[in-house]
Design a binder for these strands. Sequence first.
DNA 1: AGGACATGCTAAAACCATTTAGCACGCTGC
DNA 2: GCAGCGTGCTAAATGGTTTTAGCATGTCCT
Lengths: 340, 340
Amino acid sequence: MASKRATLADVARLAGLSPTAASMILNGRPDTRLSQDAHDRVNAAAEALGYRPNVAARGLRTDKTLTIGFISDLVATTRFASGLITGALAAAEEAGHVVLVVETGGDPARESEAIGAVLDRQVDGIIFATMRARELFVPDIPAGTTAVMLNATNAKHPTSVLPDELAGGARAVELLVEAGHREGIALLGQNDDVEKDLFRSATVARRVAGIRGAMAGHGLEFIAEESIWLWEPEGGYQAMRSLLDRGVVPRALVCMNDRIAFGAYQALSEAGLAIPDDVSIVSFDNDELAAYLRPGLTTVALPHEAMGRRAVELLLAGGVAGETLIPMPVVTRASIRAAG
Amino acid sequence: MASKRATLADVARLAGLSPTAASMILNGRPDTRLSQDAHDRVNAAAEALGYRPNVAARGLRTDKTLTIGFISDLVATTRFASGLITGALAAAEEAGHVVLVVETGGDPARESEAIGAVLDRQVDGIIFATMRARELFVPDIPAGTTAVMLNATNAKHPTSVLPDELAGGARAVELLVEAGHREGIALLGQNDDVEKDLFRSATVARRVAGIRGAMAGHGLEFIAEESIWLWEPEGGYQAMRSLLDRGVVPRALVCMNDRIAFGAYQALSEAGLAIPDDVSIVSFDNDELAAYLRPGLTTVALPHEAMGRRAVELLLAGGVAGETLIPMPVVTRASIRAAG
DNA sequence: AGGACATGCTAAAACCATTTAGCACGCTGC
DNA sequence: GCAGCGTGCTAAATGGTTTTAGCATGTCCT
């Protein structure tokens, strides 16, 4: 099969025309004056030979390769944020592009190396993605190469795509309020006093601001706030236990992420408290976990896939300075008691 | 910054030599007779200009691009098997290669398209990966392009990398036996009678064979076997409930995957049964979940990352016909009661 | 009749690196 | 004095495409 790829010259020969003509016709050059007959012959020849242009050769000439570089710290690795890749791949495919994925583990040396590697391959642009939204250091890249920051920000490269955490944070509180909760609401994971020295991702601050803004807007106050060092189930479990041990039994919980919520589920279950009858829970991220819990966890989703898509759209549009905020959809399951 | 990339010609000019000489020196051609002085001058010039070869141009001449195509159905998408990508990326990077990732969603038309797209970019070889191990249909690819099947098999492309499910299945049973379990062992997820019409991934059969082989080897029999339609937590929960409702209380559980085990945890917890004191659980996959459960789930891991690595190693070695089986490591946590 | 212009096409350069073939020079050996 | 050979290097072709510049013809206008 296909012993040798057909080249443009082959097509031209078969059509009885010059490679110049064949190239112009196949690329649909607008202002050309080639006859309809020539068009037909070239198209037929290309079809017959199964001709596909050699991207490397074309890229050499045009500096366009229909290829995007996707450089990330741990996105593919951690499976958590892999939706970013998924979205980027899908959008790229729709635009006829292909994606070169490089994972650096966050190591600056490998980051430089990665940029070199994708630049060597003449990519049309680079997306820098991080697993957790943050300011990302980016080595110099040649002027003229457009870059977009995905789930990240960088002073030199102003085009960035982020989740709309401010609105998302507020939305979580609204969900509780709409279900009739006005008292006994606790916050798990965040406590400004304790957290101010901790490094959290850049967007956590916005999430918190959204939450506090909505609480204040409704004239509500948290009955308790528990800080959690590692936002993992174990931490959520301990925090919930500690709350219960101190005798505070909330009627509703805002958890900073789904894994914390999972831990809370476990502690609540041990204490014989039912979700959502005794306590409602709302959370963030829409981790895989959220669907597995019983009852299903209602959560404000990190729109990873939409973000990935948007990043390549912006990249192909040449980059639009400024932050693009992607809405965080709420995924309604069964962890919030019915209104009333 | 870097207004224009330096070309080989620039390096040669600065070194006062011909491009030919510069090329030979930079590529470390063995049999050349260029002087030490020439070597030094070229290397210095390349360094000074920050020269990096243009991969497209080189590929045009040599047909080698240091790029690997990774075509998968849902690997990046589902985050479950994303370790396959991670491993492949890491191994590729170590070998100085870069990976073009394309996701097809399992759609044959997009699969063909994807192959075309990566071939257009002159990849050195293609890895076909599937999320769940299975026989994969692969459109024709030109002879001479090496292909390796990752977590998949294909008659035309005999090089494949698979988890060693037979040994892994047996190992799970051994874990229980080593902890002193000989009676009251139930199997959750698989029941040959019911399952024989269901389509499961190609490797499930081996996992089951491993399990049954080890049971028989120790002269043991399952106290019960529950088939589960969808291997998700909900299914595991239902199956465990059904067992309990029928009055069978196992002392140990072999679950076909971690999500089923998660469901079993929930049902057991509701029934007031403690893990591992009342019932031990062993499972498969080492899903993210397994670490989050309380107590932590002991599981026989799907070695996705190692498989991904191995696939690119085989690819770069030119493909080695036959199946390469990657051992499934056991991840010991706390769901099996201590021996005695 | 002859210049201007439109029409339909092509030759050749350019992109950048690799590779084949071979040139020029100096030395050895006879 | 010269054939033969080793040494150190280079000219030019090659790979596949795009693009610039321009060549023939034929038509129209005055």
